[in-house]
Amino acid sequence: MTDHSVSSDKVLDIDEISKVLAQMIASKMELDIDTIKADSNLKELGLDSLDTFDLIFNAEDYFKIKVPNDQININTLQDVTALVHRLIVAQKQ
């Protein structure tokens, strides 16, 4: 996946974050992006726990954030999106 650095003064909105994450999942799991919805369950999309770690790793790289170990209890795309958004916002403050 191409690494688009996030502009330092712009906070991406939830939809944009969700779109980037959906793209990552689609590329990793070789899925049609249209099949990935905000409330899609990651397990149902075929991601096991290691795949989820890998997704978080890629998200950390892309969004320039660091996800603490105690915050990786996520089940859906929505969960990841909210987590990433929260960390980006926290970083800007």
Partner: peptide, 8 residues
């Protein structure tokens, strides 16, 4: 192999 398989 699928990308999912070989990338791991």
């Amino acid at each position: 192999f699928s990308k999912h398989t070989y990338s791991m």
